[in-house]
Design a protein around this nucleic acid. Structure first.
Length: 678
DNA sequence: AAGCGCCTAAACATTG
DNA sequence: TCAATGTTTAGGCGCT
């Protein structure tokens, strides 16, 4: 199945299926001028904002640092004055290297933000919650560290002073002094220890540090033994290392690391990585190790499928995984372009998620409003089963069937707007793909017809969503043939029409092609005509029309359903469109609405339905406006006589799982020339 | 429950 | 010979 998706991607190039494609294209366009300000996307703006926030934060930190240095200096002076000693000169300090604050510590720290400043940053609201959290944690750690440093400094000073005092004091009460000194020192040690513990506790609490049973011994031990700058430094290093590891390991999530020597080059990247999984962060983090990392899992590498690089807008083909990796590292390395693409992809995902959430909500509301049978235990909400699910109970069981390999349809969470008249058909996300055994709920085919002009949009829907169209093969074949300029198609052209018009038929080719051939042979309405270039298939409308009416007449309930669907058709379409539009999803719709192919298809199908309706429902209670019973199109014989082939709809839910052998690359256009945008 | 229509699968034949 | 194209049969399911 994976293969199919891969081949599809390449084969129906134009018929890109997921809405993301267009966005990606946009990214591709924007990518060239890497650093220039030409293309400013929303992501860029956000990035910019965050950069500015960083800038502000750094400035604030700088100021704070200066202030603190100043304060420290003042404190030192005060201390000196209080101690009544002017002996201590800067020089003296310099002469005590062992007491110096470790340089590395000094480099890493001194950037504590005051509450006011922090608030200021918060008010700007330019930092993400994660960033803020990390920032806060770092600030707390920094503050504690600074307290430690100050304490340590004070301790140095006091010791120094005491030393001097001792020298000056001569021999008098030396022991007393030593005792007092020891006492003071012990107190200081205790205070430092408390601070350290507090610090560690904080770190632990913040998840920045995991203290192992034996680990606590280290700091405490060193403290009790007397603080050694080297040890302190080591301790701090350990703590900071832990912190860094922690932050970098946390799903790639990373906030502003103000204390890190190198400013984060692309703060956003790792955030994006969180949505894209580990691969992204892998490739961005350390290219050197990517190869090995992927080696074992290349089969499932999201960026590699069917020998094709799936990086947005790339599609480069590779013989083997190795070359792909090479390509990945070379062409999609960490640069502006990749970054931009990554951002775009993230937005795409976010958009999709957003849309999904919205639609789910909407669906829920709709179901609630319509009192959709709550009997279904299914987890997933059922879409449009607008028509009271009469036969629901029946259909329910099958749906529990084994999951077929059908991949989820990316594009359509929403139901086809098709006037799924098939009332009973319960089109659920599940059923769509699990075609389980009985899959074919093709309900009365004859009834399901698209009815409203909105069929065009439905067409678009089917072109892009892997949803089985609710028409029989015969109906579809006929449609394809009638759409052709000469009203005739070769078998291959029919195949192409199917794949072009319905995403659903882009897979499981063997199955549906066989069905097509079977239908062509089986139904009298399809006439094989020898042509110059071989044989072509035409439609005998008379034969085709013969069988349509019958059913409709039969069941009032069905008629009712049809009416219902008629009424809902447009509404559904509108809802679908609204949904898409609302979420800014490009979807195939509008673009090709005016295409002749679609229109003709829509018309033809509509006719078909209308014809059926006429037969079954002569009074036309429904709203179908201007329904010219058949003929509107291709010499359709009016008389709806015998029921021969009136085809109903293909079951929407059908055997979706077959061997995937969609033979891509059959040009879709060999048949009629109008391939609209496909 | 029977009959019908449709779908899927598959065997087989024909053709290029 | 092979693949594409046609034909036919069989079985299953949903619906009436």
């Amino acid at each position: 199945m994976m293969q199919e998706s891969g081949t599809e991607a390449t084969s129906n190039g134009p018929a890109s299926q997921n809405g993301a494609v267009s966005v990606e294209d946009g990214a591709r366009d924007a990518r060239p001028k890497s650093a220039t300000s030409v293309d400013v996307t929303a992501a860029d703006l956000i990035h910019l904002q965050q950069q500015q926030a960083l800038q502000v934060a750094r400035q604030i930190l700088l100021q704070q640092q200066q202030q603190q240095q100043h304060q420290q200096h003042q404190q030192q002076q005060q201390l000196q004055l209080q101690q009544g000693t002017n002996l201590k000169s800067p020089k003296d300090n310099d002469n005590l290297p062992s007491l110096q604050v470790p340089v590395s510590v000094a480099m890493m720290t001194p950037q504590v933000i005051t509450p006011q400043q922090m608030q200021q940053i918060l008010q700007q609201q330019v930092l993400s919650p994660q960033q803020l959290q990390v920032l806060l944690q770092q600030q707390q750690a920094l503050m504690l560290q600074q307290q430690l440093q100050e304490f340590y400094k004070k301790q140095q000073e006091q010791l120094h002073l005491q030393l001097l005092q001792q020298q000056h004091a001569g021999k008098q009460s030396k022991e007393q002094q030593q005792q007092a000194q020891q006492l003071a020192f012990q107190q200081q040690l205790m205070q430092v220890q408390q601070l350290q513990q507090q610090h560690l506790l904080n770190l632990q609490r913040q998840g920045l540090l995991t203290i192992q049973p034996g680990q606590t011994a280290l700091p405490l031990h060193s403290l009790t033994q007397g603080i050694n700058p080297a040890e302190l430094q080591q301790l701090w290093k350990e703590v900071t290392n832990l912190k860094e590891e922690n932050s970098s390991n946390s799903n790639g999530r990373r906030g502003l690391d103000l204390s890190s020597p190198q400013p984060p080059k692309k703060p956003l990247l790792n955030q994006h990585a969180s949505t894209n999984g580990q691969y992204m962060s892998h490739s961005l983090k350390r290219e050197g190790s990517t190869l090995d990392d992927y080696q074992h899992s290349h089969h499932s590498h999201p960026l590699y499928g069917h020998g094709v690089c799936k990086w947005p807008g790339c599609e480069a083909v590779f013989e083997d995984f190795q070359s792909f990796l090479k390509h990945l590292n070379n062409e999609h390395a960490l640069d502006d372009r990749s970054t931009a693409q990554c951002r775009v992809q993230m937005q795409v995902v976010q958009q999709l998620e957003l849309q999904l959430a919205k639609d789910k909500e909407r669906l829920q509301a709709m179901m609630t409003h319509l009192h959709v049978k709550s009997t279904e235990p299914k987890s997933t909400p059922q879409p449009l089963n607008l028509v009271s699910s009469i036969t629901l109970s029946k259909t329910a069981p099958p749906e529990a069937s084994p999951p077929l390999s059908l991949p989820q349809t990316p594009t359509t969470p929403t139901a086809p707007l098709t006037p799924l008249s098939q009332a009973h058909s319960v089109i659920t996300p599940n059923s769509l793909h699990h075609s389980v055994g009985p899959m074919r709920r093709r309900y009365s085919d004859k009834y399901n017809m698209p009815i409203s002009p909105d069929i065009v949009q439905n067409k678009e829907f089917y072109m892009n969503a892997e949803v089985r169209p609710p028409f029989t093969y015969a109906s579809l074949i006929r449609q394809g043939i009638l759409e052709s300029p000469e009203k005739q198609l070769t078998l291959n052209e029919i195949y192409n029409w199917f794949t072009r018009m319905f995403a659903y038929f882009r897979r499981n080719a063997a199955t549906w092609k066989n069905a097509v051939r079977h239908n062509l042979s089986l139904h009298k309405c399809f006439v094989r005509v020898e042509n110059v270039k071989g044989a072509v298939w035409t439609v005998d409308e008379l034969e085709f029309q013969k069988r349509r009416p019958q059913k409709i007449t039969g069941s009032p309930a069905l008629v009712k359903n049809i009416q219902t669907s008629l009424g809902y058709g447009p509404a559904l379409s509108a809802a679908f469109q609204a949904s898409m539009a609302e979420n800014n999803i490009p979807l195939y719709t509008t673009a090709s609405i005016g295409s002749p192919t679609l229109n003709s298809l829509a018309n033809a199908i509509r006719e078909e339905m209308i014809g059926a309706m006429d037969h079954g429902n002569s009074n036309g209670s429904d709203s179908s406006p201007g329904r010219s019973p058949l003929p509107a199109m291709h010499h359709i014989k009016e008389e709806p006589l015998d029921p021969e082939d009136h085809e109903g709809p293909l079951s929407l839910v059908t055997t979706a799982n077959h061997s995937p052998d969609f033979d891509h690359h059959r040009d879709y256009d060999d048949d009629q020339g109008h391939d609209d945008m496909l």
